[in-house]
Nucleic acid binder design. Structure first.
Lengths: 343, 343
DNA sequence: TTGAAAGCGCTAACAG
DNA sequence: CTGTTAGCGCTTTCAA
């Protein structure tokens, strides 16, 4: 068993509660000498407070749980967001317990994650953007476990990027630089709200400017060996064909994510179209993505801010669990890089 | 305050300890009727055991800490590894507390992560491949906190991929398919042991087969705007030049990571060299990476196994903290995809 | 088959 | 300035 407060107190020749107060910085009333003796004892003995005991007594775990899906491409937390959450929590002397739950299991209440089955955190951060089961939401509400949803636009208790704004931001950047023929590109894929909203942002911005909105959807990559040459793929072929087929090629493109941008750059390269000389590309994404060393001009999602907000909203929710917290929408930032320029 | 065991016991008209035993599956001696009453009560009241109290009493936290760097490109844990760790822990009814520490702060003992300053986990998993400070290692040993290092070859208490084998595996795959002229490619970069070991694996395998080992190092991508055309980069230029300059081009390439493979595929495409018809590529990496839809044939690191091993070694270490645990080296697996074929 | 008593390590309220 | 008392919610041991 590890060093306990009792041993520290004995070593410093003082009562246990006194040692507790002093080590928690509430020992102003104790003599300078005593304070030093206790700290000294703690240091030499290598005392580390037992958080379980503290939590048992105080009723606060000083811990937050993070719930995420284990689906490979959906709702896996991005490193930036995780880091931001950890930093914010650490600053408040709290820690983070992580759990991942497979989509199938979450629908079966038998397989509820431990964080929800057991009482071990003061609140939950939820990053589970797809099909979060109603029942679990209810269960969380019933169990009175304070929770904040990330990356999901709900009526309350959530933080998420303003994706309409992201679309507008990327579009505005190009408009400001004189582009008039701008197309929106996306792969087909999941049903996250960002998918519609980013496109709507693009469309409204174009329409508000009195321009035509166009968008093209391409099939997600899939490997297809054509003539033994793996360099031909349906997606690229389509993109190249598309680039060449247009009577009047757009001067700029906004893409749903860096992946579309990357594919577009590759297709452009294969078609002999120079980026950004002949074609500007602005992506929307977690970070400025680099395609073969070229940084893609991007509307970057406010992940750091989202982590901070999520934590501080959660703490507020923990303080007064009954009160609903107003949904918080955060704005992306445009980061200039090498794939867009003025016409 | 949440529902406690006391309330469950009252509801079921039985003593608290009885309720405890029954809910923990140790209630064989109690009547069938009582068992049911207690479970029923727990269910209707929505009882969730307080883990802090349990830990305080039992002296076991049933928790493990994960320590990682916050350096963007080093020692950030890979999703596969994290998932494997979580699954293995969950199966054993344990949970994971995550903390990230910046490199500078870890050298200053003042800024020790909370998991180490406080007593809150039964053991630590450490994924901190670069420059892990000696002092912290000592501190962990002194504090008797059981720990297992991941991804680092130490004398004991660690799990890591056998990177020499990874290099050999990738090379052997190509040799088996009749390739004789094989070159090893890497970008310059960090000082992880995998860097030397993968190359050594390649070299020894070549030499054992009586062949010449060759390797080429390229500078890591860096954006360089040449003639306003961001599609020209130093790295690609060099790779293309290299591909063309060779009197006798290799028929196959082994790369340190998917990034080199990706760049190589791009360079090959630009030079009009067909992969895999004229050039086979095998990478070493976390997973089968896809370049524009083409899956790269790879020696895939045993991350799932590493997670499982790390957890089970740690549990053994927790059971008997004094005993050093023999270092465990794990083997990669070759996954066939679309970038390599027989000559 | 069940209950009572003890105590994990810590903090909070009060009395001196 | 300092010590005492009480108890968080749970598990374990022992007695009935």
């Amino acid at each position: 068993m590890a060093v306990t407060l009792k041993e520290v107190a004995q070593h410093a020749q003082i009562s246990i509660p006194a040692a507790s107060l002093i080590l928690n910085g509430k020992g102003k009333t104790y003599s300078k000498d005593t304070n030093e003796r206790v700290h000294e004892a703690a240091r030499t003995l290598g005392y580390r407070p037992n958080l379980a005991a503290r939590a048992a007594r105080s009723g606060k775990f000083n811990a937050v749980g993070l719930l995420m899906s284990d689906h490979p491409c959906s709702s896996r937390i991005s490193p930036q967001l995780l880091q931001s959450i950890l930093e914010t929590l650490t600053a408040r002397d709290m820690h983070l317990t992580v759990s991942q739950v497979s989509d199938e299991k979450l629908t079966d209440l038998k397989f509820l994650p431990k964080v929800l089955q057991q009482h071990m955190v003061d609140g939950m951060l939820i990053n589970y953007t797809h099909d979060f089961p109603e029942q679990v939401t209810e269960l969380i509400h019933e169990s009175m476990l304070p929770a904040i949803w990330m990356n999901t636009p709900l009526a309350s208790d959530c933080v998420y990027p303003d994706e309409i704004h992201s679309g507008q931001l990327a579009t505005q950047y190009l408009l400001d630089r004189g582009h008039r023929k701008i197309t929106y590109i996306e792969f087909d894929g999941s049903e996250h709200y960002s998918r519609t909203d980013r496109r709507v942002g693009y469309e409204t911005k174009m329409q508000d400017t009195g321009l035509h909105a166009n968008h093209a959807t391409f099939p997600t990559y899939y490997p297809k060996q054509v003539n033994d040459d793996p360099m031909s793929y349906q997606t690229h072929e389509q993109m190249c064909r598309w680039l060449k087929s247009l009577k009047k090629r757009p001067t700029a493109i906004v893409t749903y994510s860096p992946w579309e941008a990357q594919a577009m750059m590759y297709a452009a390269a294969l078609c002999g179209i120079s980026v950004p000389k002949e074609l500007s590309i602005v992506a929307i994404g977690d970070d400025v993505f680099s395609f073969m060393g070229t940084s893609i001009t991007s509307a970057v999602l406010p992940l750091e801010e989202m982590g901070q907000s999520a934590v501080s909203l959660l703490l507020r929710k923990i303080a007064s669990p009954a009160r609903k917290i107003r949904a918080r929408k955060l704005k992306s930032t445009l980061v200039e890089a090498q794939t867009a320029r003025a016409v």
